[in-house]
Write a protein that binds this DNA or RNA. Structure first.
Lengths: 219, 219
DNA sequence: ACGGTTCGGTTGTATTTACAACAGATTGGT
DNA sequence: ACCAATCTGTTGTAAATACAACCGAACCGT
């Protein structure tokens, strides 16, 4: 089995936990590793979840297809990120989204009971892990709010400006690379791809921005 | 000072904490109570926050006005609910929304450091409070995702159906009362009020639903 | 009873969008 | 090098939306 300790060391769930402790925590927390191929479903809407997941390798999309087949991408998960944590609370119902691997991926599963319940053994880090969990979900919360900020704009152009200018702020540059292709960006912003493509070109003609593939330059 | 212990007893933050312990925790956690008049701002976009807030009385709106003055309502806070918890993480930046009192309201402030840091004294409940905090933010997370589900629908009608049918599911009835007036509902769904009003009447004419003020009946 | 304010509904118009269909470019596999 | 699949841009049309303006009803305090 591939050694993912260096990855977990940098994962938010284990922030503040020493290298040597991670290995012991893996068994203490009952960690399981699973691998997925590109395009494979990791979680499906309607399932129930009792594990907190940490992406060790690859990347994932959180998405949802509605009754009419419109797909909306709610977010993207990169290596080291936690997910599923919003659905392990006792009263939480079923999953509201699919999670799908956009590349070949490896994922750690941690049983939430063992994460949250402080054990009497050597693991001195449960409190810290629960705090990390809280901070991680806080961050996800904020990014959901930001996404809501983009989507609640009225026109496609405003949505694009809102999204791109925030990316520029995040990446601290007017040259930005986005993690989506056109269809995915359209799904993320909940607009029609061709209409969005059209709007992007109009904005380019007006000199608002330049782009090539998924790299953009704002003015 | 009004006795809010019965309210706090039912608040999610203190679930599982005995009545008599709440009083002692209030001082241990350094709780402060503030009152706000209807229409007054509780928090403003751009501020930094180091307290977790619990609404003891009244009701609040989380909202945001964009550059062009379009208001979007991100959610509503009722008595006993926690808020602000997503912005107290160490790396979290400034608030992304305003919080405004829609009625005269009373709010408890808890310094996050004292909530999260386990103290050595009599408070045996810090662990439980941190867990409650985690479950509360999980729930908020899920409701954000649900709202995203509504807003990411393409047409006003689909947004309305998505929102109303979910309310019906929540309230477990086809007769539902919504906590918004027309303008607020339009802000919540990020659509134009008059267009939405128009669409609602069309749907009524088509026999999809009936309504009077903020009470709806679905078919 | 009065005037002011808020709220919900209606209408018309200009703008914006979704949708479908297609074409060229790029990518990936064999 | 080739074919197939995917990605991106383009166009036209029908549908949906925002916006502004207005009206009547309900509600408020004085």
């Amino acid at each position: 089995m591939k050694d993912f300790v260096p990855v977990l060391k940098r994962a938010k769930l284990f922030a503040g936990v020493g290298d040597e402790d991670i290995t012991s925590m893996l068994s203490c927390l009952g960690a399981k590793l699973r691998t997925y191929e590109k395009g494979e479903y990791v979680l499906r809407e309607g399932e129930r979840l009792s594990d907190i997941l940490v992406l060790a390798e690859g990347s994932l999309h959180i998405q949802r297809d509605d009754y009419w087949g419109n797909r909306s991408i709610l977010g993207r998960i990169e290596v080291g990120e936690i997910f599923g944590e919003a659905y392990v609370a006792p009263e939480s119902g079923m999953l509201l989204n699919d999670v799908i691997a956009v590349e070949d991926s490896s994922i750690f599963f941690f049983d939430v009971k063992r994460v949250i319940t402080t054990c009497s053994s050597a693991c001195r880090f449960h409190t810290m892990v629960v705090q990390n969990l809280f901070f991680a979900i806080s961050e996800k919360n904020r990014s959901l709010v930001q996404k809501l900020g983009h989507i609640s704009k009225r026109t496609t152009r405003e949505k694009l400006i809102s999204y791109l200018s925030e990316e520029a702020k995040k990446q601290n540059s007017s040259y930005i690379t986005i993690p989506f292709n056109r269809q995915q960006l359209a799904d993320y912003l909940s607009v029609d791809r061709s209409a969005m493509s059209n709007e992007l070109c109009k904005m380019r003609n007006e000199g608002l921005l330049e782009f090539e593939k998924n790299r953009f330059k704002l003015r």
